[in-house]
Design a protein around this nucleic acid. Structure first.
Lengths: 189, 189
DNA sequence: ACCTGAACACCGTTCAAGT
DNA sequence: ACCTGAACACCGTTCAAGT
């Protein structure tokens, strides 16, 4: 409950991450903003990679908790799925650096990161199964169908972020539109 | 035709990029490998960003040329499209750093980069239209349909690269499989 | 247990100077 | 026109030393 130095370091690093991307996160500036020396972070994290992994894990846990809340409601599973995928794309747009950090390659193995990612996947899988049972998604391996949905949402978000999605502005092909398009194509008629 | 210093610098930088990612590309090492001083690159490129943009543009032009060749053949357009998307995913796996560089956010505007990207899109759009005309893809705005296909291929490639696609190995949900799955779902029955 | 300050080996970039 | 060497302001990381 007490505001530890570790928390201060994490908050400062997250602030820098959001403001200027991963390259703006320097241990020296993190220390400066936390009121400690430039290498105090080494008493709390093995190195810079470990600090970034801790930020990624914390953010992933936040998102998993929100997803759990959404799934607990009375909404039909295909609606929950649609909203979750759309929120994923919106979140990527709002916090691009967090998105890149979490869904980029992890150079350091982190148990807590892997655990949070697995839990989020399990939640989504439940929604896919329920949507299949309700006839809103075609039958077949739910893991494979979820992979398709996630790949589309991820690719749409990433391309939009890079400005490579419909560069002429034609077709209104933004990420939420593409997610809706896919769900429509997948809906058994 | 002569091997200019500029070419040497580009080749050295590309080598470093492939070997160790974008962070392994330092102007000092590029100069070292090209047999010039650590700041000779500044006589050929405005800065490091411009050097990276030149590499990206060169690679994008190579890929566009290969795509043009593929489209000129007698193969049915939906097969060309399928092969192009699969090759995209394979290329991402083989040259992850080039993939990240080209499809990441461009911090420096480059006319030649923008031009090459636009040309590649135009080529793919032709294939989509032909596949629609042949009944292999559903009707509707071809730009929007192409955006869907590219987003899926991009997302599948990027997640696979990061090791976040089917982490348990279940479902055989690798990138080529997902591309095939989407084309199957899209095929009007 | 946690923190500091100096030090080391790197960076990108600038600049005066050379051919 | 192209290149060099010194210099500047940064980095991440290590280490001896302090409380």
């Amino acid at each position: 409950m007490t505001r530890t130095t570790r928390d201060l370091l994490l908050d400062a690093a997250e602030q820098l991450l959001d403001a200027g991307g991963v390259e703006a996160v320097t241990l020296r500036e993190v220390g400066r903003r936390s009121g400690v020396s430039h290498n105090a972070p080494y008493k709390h994290f093995a190195n810079k990679e470990a600090l970034l992994a801790a930020i990624a894990a914390r953010e992933l846990r936040r998102r998993r908790d929100r997803l759990t809340t959404a799934l607990a409601g009375a909404e039909p599973p295909e609606q929950v799925l649609r909203r979750s995928l759309r929120r994923y794309a919106e979140w990527a747009q709002e916090y691009p650096a967090r998105f890149k950090l979490i869904y980029g390659r992890w150079t350091t193995h982190s148990d807590e990161l892997a655990e949070a990612a697995h839990a989020a996947s399990a939640q989504l899988l439940t929604a896919v199964r329920a949507a299949q049972a309700g006839g809103a998604l075609p039958p077949g391996d739910p893991e494979r169908l979820l992979a398709l949905l996630r790949a589309l949402a991820h690719g749409a978000a990433d391309l939009e972020l890079a400005g490579h999605l419909a560069p002429d502005g034609k077709g209104h092909a933004d990420a939420p539109t593409l997610i809706d398009d896919l769900l429509t194509y997948l809906h058994p008629s």
